[in-house]
Amino acid sequence: MPASTSARDVFINCPFDSTYKPVFWAIVFTVLRSGFSPRCALEEDDSSENRLAKIQTIIEECRYGIHDISRTEVDGDPPLPRFNMPLELGLFFGAKRYGNKDQRSKRALVLDREQYRYQRFISDIAGADIHAHGADPGKCIEQVATWLRTQSRDRKIPGGRKIAEEFEVFQSQLGAICADRGLEPDELTFGDFAELVAAYLTVDP
């Protein structure tokens, strides 16, 4: 029996390596700032659970999906493409296409570095509106914030540029907040980061 989706849960399908981390954190910050709840494969560290099954469950439970396919590029020897993000994008599209009424209400935002690069590796989604962020966290925030505001229709949610400014300030303060807890920013787990951002956005000092 397919689970119902949460109208506030956003599945973030993106790379999790250190190079991409500034963009990932920018997306998480924007999702929380826009009144949504971020979810991704990192939310549970349980080695006994099959990774794909975990991702499928999260996709099933999320109404919205942000898919960054910018890291679909050849790597290693022999050079082969990294294909996890397009795979999860396909799962999301599949749930929307074949799922129940609730699953069919899914909405996706697809991001890439350049607007038409995807046509070279997943041309089947040609015609979809792909948003380019140029690997820039600020530009990514603008794209995500605009899309989420359209989905929520909440006029209180600020524009992408304001959220990008707030994220820049937040980043400059993250080191001090972490230091107070005896941590380095790169030690934060996804759960730590999301809780910290939620507190940062709402605490009245």
């Binding site: 949504f36 979810r39 001090a176 807890r181 030690e187 730590d192 999301a194 809780e195 709402t202």
Partner: peptide, 28 residues
């Protein structure tokens, strides 16, 4: 602002709120 379903591992929600209050670095 909603809380993520993922739980923090290095601190509790209460602890991080206290830290942010103490350091005075909140968005507001």
């Amino acid at each position: 602002v909603l809380r993520a379903k993922a739980k923090p591992t290095h601190f509790t929600a209460k602890q991080i709120r206290e830290t942010i209050q103490r350091t005075g670095l909140a968005l507001s």
